[in-house]
């Protein structure tokens, strides 16, 4: 009995380790994206829709705080035109961000975003955003970029304040506009 049946066992154990490797590298990233979508973490949770007729505006105010960052590797000045706005839920709203290229040459970037608290993400509906595409700026160019959105009236009662935050990253090559694990929302 001693020493018999090693081959079968070894094959099984090797299969286990190969499949956990595959699990880590192939299953974890999509599972993680799915998880973020469900929980509203990162940009995966935010809804993106074509502009359409909105449901009647409810008389309920929410405060939207707007935040902007440029990654340290991208020498751009990037800020919201308004830092906070007060809107009604369901109301089609618009705000804008201002961006300026501090470089002596043209450069391009792409913004990623998230919404806090994460539970608010799925009620935050974007109809237009500069983050949907790559942005290129000429040397020293400045521009204002609009964001159009509304808040789904189903927004849970306890949420009175929502932060929308953007970070611009360099994106020199148009081919790499979306990454390996790009979240489904864009």
């Amino acid at each position: 009995m001693r020493g018999s049946g090693n081959t079968g066992l070894v094959i099984k154990l090797v299969l286990v380790s190969v499949s956990t490797f595959a699990f880590g590298i192939f299953a974890m990233p999509p599972l993680y994206d799915k998880f973020c979508q469900i929980t509203g973490i990162g940009q995966a949770g935010v809804r993106v829709e074509a502009p359409r007729d909105l449901p009647a505006v409810a008389e309920r105010k929410v405060t939207i705080l707007l935040d902007a960052n440029a990654n340290s590797t991208l020498p751009w000045e990037f800020e919201p035109v308004q830092r906070r706005i007060n809107i009604n839920v369901g109301e089609a709203s618009e705000t804008a961000y201002r961006v300026r290229n501090l470089l002596e040459e043209a450069s391009a970037g792409r913004a990623v975003y998230n919404v806090t608290p994460p539970t608010a993400a799925r009620y935050f509906v974007k109809t237009e955003c500069f983050c949907f595409s790559r942005q290129s700026l000429l040397a020293g160019e400045e521009k204002e970029m609009p964001v159009r959105f509304y808040i789904d009236p189903e927004l849970p009662e306890e949420i009175e304040e929502i932060t929308l935050s953007y970070t611009f990253f360099p994106n020199p090559d148009p081919d790499t506009a979306s990454g390996t694990t790009a979240s489904g929302s864009d």
Partner: peptide, 21 residues
């Protein structure tokens, strides 16, 4: 690739989940 690179649509926090798993 951009598994963990936010600029390319990845997420550095995902590394932390995998690493600590």
């Amino acid at each position: 690739t951009s598994f963990f690179n936010a600029a390319g649509g990845g997420d550095p926090v995902m590394f932390q989940h995998i690493f600590w798993f």
